[in-house]
Every structure is written in structure tokens, then in C-alpha cells.
């Protein structure tokens, strides 16, 4: 299917809705600390943002890797709060505005860690996993040896919950991916019945796949991924 291979070197995951798991790479802590970020920067991060920064600090302690961040919905809470303020003709909060943009968490991390490499933020309408692997291949084709792919999402704000067909779980996962040397990730087309049964993959689905609990399928791209032992 492709000439550029991707291998998994390491990962971290956070899924506070899950029961505790024996694998120490998965945290279910409901109140993540964000200890890798100084307090004056940390105060602007929500729980997911704190988790992302701590994962990046563990997987890339020297802050020398390319980072790709994906989220289907981004920070819906902050964005909606701003829209409510605008509707009521109130002035916008500059801090809230600054942190509502899609690359805000990586921006805070880059300030805290001094990472000046490429930082990319994407949303792909439910095909974030496919997009992350596709972008990763692009970096490898350009000569990067490894990248970190982050996938983060949260439930949409309550007022919009009725408009969403697939409720989103609060979870974050970070993959340290290399061009070679780790467990190979194989991409294959999936058949119509597999695609018909699957929902758009969320971070929680990627975590289940990493733990070998469930397959990983992207119905809109008709793709599935398997991990070498």
C-alpha cells in the first residue's frame, strides 16, 4: 500500500473514563498535573493540554522531535464561551482567545520545552488517525527519523451534544513513531462490512488498539491498521 513504513517505538495514553490498567503507559488519573510545564504557563492549559505536555516531555525529553497534533473538535468549551460572549456583546477574553486556536497546546509546550522543530495541528473530520499516519509518512519521506503524533479529543460542550451522532470520550494518546526500528504499523484497505461496523476512530479507540483490545478502522478512508508483535 505504501513505500514509507512507520514503526511504533513507544506511546503514552490518558483515558480518565477507563478502569485502571496494568500497563503503566496508560493513565486514568482524573486530575493530571502538568508538572512538565511551569506554573505560569500551565495555568492556561486544560486537563487535556496538561496531559499532552507531560506526554511530550516523557517521549521527547530533549525537545528535538517534530510534533503532529490532531483533534477532531479542538477546544470546544473555550470557543463556545467566546461565541456566547460575542452574542451578548461582551468583550472577548484575550487569554481564552489565545488558547482556543487548534495549535494552542503545542504552542505552550514549545515555549515550555524550547522545541523549535515543526509543530503541526490538524483536524480531519473523524479521519484523524489516517491523517496522522499520512503526515508522518510525509515527514519520513522528507528525511525525519522520528515524529510524535498526538491525538486528543473531548466531549463536545453540552449544548451541542444533541447534534453529535458519535459522542466523544475524553482521552489523549501520544505515539513515538520512527521510520524503522520499532513495531511496524501495517496499513490495509478494510472491507465494507468492517467499515460499516466501525465509528470514526477516537483517541479512546486508538488506546484500545494499542492495548490489543480492538481493531483500528477508519470507515471514511476505508482503512485499517495492524501492529506487528
Amino acid at each position: 500500500m505504501t513505500t514509507v513504513s512507520i514503526t511504533l517505538q513507544d506511546w503514552r495514553a490518558w483515558h480518565p473514563g477507563r478502569a485502571p490498567h496494568a500497563d503503566s503507559r496508560l493513565s486514568v488519573d482524573p486530575q493530571p498535573r502538568g508538572a512538565s510545564v511551569p506554573a505560569m504557563l500551565r495555568r492556561r492549559l486544560n486537563a487535556s493540554g496538561r496531559v499532552v505536555c507531560d506526554m511530550l516531555s516523557e517521549l521527547d525529553p530533549e525537545a528535538r522531535r517534530v510534533l503532529i497534533y490532531a483533534s477532531r473538535h479542538g477546544d470546544g468549551d473555550r470557543t463556545l464561551e467566546m461565541l456566547y460572549a460575542l452574542a451578548e456583546q461582551e468583550p472577548l477574553s484575550p487569554a481564552r482567545f489565545g488558547m482556543s486556536v487548534h495549535n494552542a497546546t503545542l504552542g505552550v509546550h514549545s515555549i515550555a520545552s524550547g522545541n523549535r522543530h515543526s509543530l503541526q495541528a490538524i483536524a480531519a473530520g473523524g479521519a484523524e488517525v489516517a491523517a496522522l499516519f499520512s503526515e508522518t509518512r510525509g515527514y519520513f519521506a522528507e528525511g525525519e527519523r522520528d515524529v510524535i503524533a498526538v491525538f486528543s479529543d473531548a466531549p463536545v460542550p453540552e449544548r451541542f451534544a444533541a447534534h453529535v451522532t458519535e459522542p466523544t470520550e475524553l482521552a489523549v494518546v501520544a505515539l513515538l513513531l520512527s521510520a524503522s526500528g520499532g513495531r511496524e504499523i501495517h496499513t490495509r484497505p478494510c472491507d465494507a462490512s468492517q467499515a460499516g461496523q466501525a465509528r470514526s476512530p477516537q483517541p479512546s479507540d486508538l488506546i484500545a488498539w494499542l492495548l490489543d483490545e480492538a481493531p483500528l478502522v477508519c470507515p471514511s478512508r476505508r482503512l485499517t491498521w495492524t501492529l506487528s508483535p
Binding site: P91, S93, P94, A95, G98
Partner: peptide
């Protein structure tokens, strides 16, 4: 205290409100 430029804007808004 170590505040930054976004804090200055935020504080200006709080004084207004």
C-alpha cells in the same frame, strides 16, 4: 509577579468590567 502581555490585556478587560 511575572505576568505577560496576554495578562495585560486580560487585566485591562477585568478593570473595564
Amino acid at each position: 509577579l511575572g505576568l505577560d502581555s496576554i495578562d495585560a490585556l486580560e487585566l485591562g478587560l477585568a478593570l473595564q468590567k
